[in-house]
Amino acid sequence: MRGAQVSRTLAGAAPWLAVLLALAILPRLLPDWLGFLLTVAFAKALVVLGVAVLLRSNLVSFGHGLYFAAGAYTVGFAAKWLHLREAVLLIFGAVVVSGALAALLGLFLARYRGIFFGMLTLAFSMILYSLLLRLYWLTGGTDGMVTAPPTILGVVPGAAAGRAHYYLTLVCLALALALTRRWLGSPLGYLASAIRDNEIRVEYMGASVRQGIYRTYLLSGVLGGLGGCLVAFSVGHIAPEFSYWTQSGDFVFVTVLGGYASVFAPVMGSVVFELVRNYAYALSPYTWQMSLGAILLLIVLFLPRGLWSLLAPRAPVSSPWTSSSRR
């Protein structure tokens, strides 16, 4: 009985392990810039995942750049003031800072829905943006800060920094995906999509809509901070634009591009977006925005459920993100 369960779990996990293994050997096959691109795409996928969990409750965060910047500047300030360079500690710090920020702002935001939620998140992120810009002597203003490559568990990666960041990001992403998936399979996770369908009914069933949203927001903020921290590691430079509205807009764009019917959709969206944008830069340097806009237009008009709907065409919109075998 027990053995059967274990083997079933193993069988269920096998495809994911295979994917993970494939991703693990990928940087050996790819040129440097593609490896770097994947690192950045994976790190941003965390932020996109954060936007996506909110979108499951029909909340559009137009200010997730806030957490992206918070995570990144945690790295910057920890290096500047505390001379902290250890990746694990920095990740921990970014999670704590963005979590604390989300815990605070969530108190206000949990009351809001629809366009008001979006506008308030936008306002918060723009306040952070103007602070990062204004506190010039602290943050370097628009010049941003250079973040030196961190040590990973005490090891200085040196020449292998690119790959080290790739694996670090991959591990963080895998953990975050597993956790988010688990969370969504929990009663709280189901609550989030129930809120999307009918708030009043959720309240009548005895659950608190506000708390559901608050906790979802907390998770989404932490994911955003983690993503920002990892981007700071690999890119090595952070700037106030991380909190600008166009950055937040990109995250929403990628969420819709990938779709949000699965936790893996944001990863797919993020990778495709980075690839498309890079080829747009390389192939039409003078009109890359137009190429990007045209692709977005096509997706919005013809694939409003995102790229993931190509893979799972018959999945209903509000289908749970988790496999149906759970609970």
Partner: peptide, 22 residues
């Protein structure tokens, strides 16, 4: 020729692509 506009990670990716791919 490459456009310099874009967020910092895009600028760095473009640079890396220029050097290691092109």
């Amino acid at each position: 020729v490459v456009d310099e506009a874009g967020p910092t990670d895009q600028v760095v990716t473009n640079y890396r692509r220029l050097v290691t791919d092109q």
